[in-house]
Design a binder for these strands. Structure first.
Lengths: 190, 190
DNA sequence: GCTATACGAATGAACGTTCGTTTGTAAAGA
DNA sequence: TCTTTACAAACGAACGTTCATTCGTATAGC
């Protein structure tokens, strides 16, 4: 697929635009300038502005859900699973930084029932993540930490990568993953 | 000051509204419903909608800058300083969750020159934070981690508290701080 | 004690602008 | 020929803000 369709370019440029200005502050006329189509032409390809947001949010939710499913299938060791989840977040953030930003920050502008669906998926994902931590504690692979606190601290700690990472940075993705895993698993203390 | 002035109520309700819906999606008419004033009446007390955002962002930036200054004055031990910074973030997040959310998420809607000022303050704060980590590594209090990665991981990991913490939660602020510090300093691994 | 003056606070109406979207039409592609 | 795509024009709705005016109250002059 060397040539992108208009529809593909609408979604791609919308993700970039939403990341830079936020969903509400991005107008269809702004988007028009980037795609090279007049605003009225969008509606030959999409149903509404919010459809763009819905697709971006749902696509990314699926990436995380599918990733989690694969991780639970690949391994039963909590430490391995935790490391794999951290890698999952970093990989997604680097592969498509615009989409993941929109997914992180703009989901609140979804209307019902899409908002409720999104939150349900997120809650389910968090529960599976927490389960990894709880199992690790039970198996004494992890220390006795509060699972909810560990869940949110780790989950949230991975939200800066899309904003920080640029191809020109010297560090490779593999090294970045290694450093962050090391930090979250072992802490900063020597 | 048992009775709040109209101006105080505007800023307070605006912070709540901006937190729930975001700055751009919050209209002066929305705010009007909460404050109990007609939109036109606002302009006897404030200059513009953005002035509200500016004050919230600047006030919170000051809280962090002042907090950091006090920490560097109180102690020279990197571990103590790191712990104090983590407590600072948690305390601010719990004391005024609406303002800190707006500070975290809505600063991008500031216009120039306020945006540039805000980013300059944030960068300076990050530099002072990073300095704590670097000093800790030099003094062998911390392991040899990448300072930039540690900075952003720790800084970002503290951004979920305002959203999660509610007074009805069983856990006290002191215990919450202890748990998070323990997690970030020592990691999850046993 | 009464009136006149001043002024902050609140308001309804309206402003110009921007928003997402629809419509009608014409060209291009199958 | 029939469908897809692009566009200019226009739509009603919502936006932040302004304006002239009114209201309520506190002070000053007599």
């Amino acid at each position: 697929m060397v040539v992108k369709t208009s529809k593909e370019r609408i979604f791609e440029e919308a993700a970039n635009l939403f990341r830079e200005k936020g969903y509400q502050a991005s107008s269809m006329r702004d988007l028009s300038d980037r795609v090279g189509l007049k605003p009225s032409s969008f509606y030959n390809h999409i149903k509404s502005k919010e459809e763009i947001l819905q697709k971006i949010c749902l696509d990314n939710a699926m990436k995380f859900v599918d990733g989690m499913k694969a991780i639970k299938k690949d391994s039963t060791d909590p430490l391995e699973q935790l490391q794999a989840v951290i890698r999952l977040h970093i990989d997604i953030a680097i592969k498509d930084r615009s989409s993941v930003t929109v997914f992180n920050d703009e989901w609140k502008h979804l209307s019902e029932p899409h908002l409720a669906n999104f939150l349900k998926m997120r809650k389910r994902y968090e529960k599976e993540f927490k389960n990894i931590i709880e199992t690790g504690i039970k198996k004494k692979v992890f220390r006795k930490v509060n699972p909810a606190i560990a869940l949110f601290t780790i989950l949230t700690s991975l939200k800066w990568i899309h904003y920080w990472h640029k191809p020109k940075r010297k560090i490779s993705v593999k090294d970045l993953e290694k450093d962050i895993i090391n930090l979250l698993v072992n802490g900063v203390s020597s």
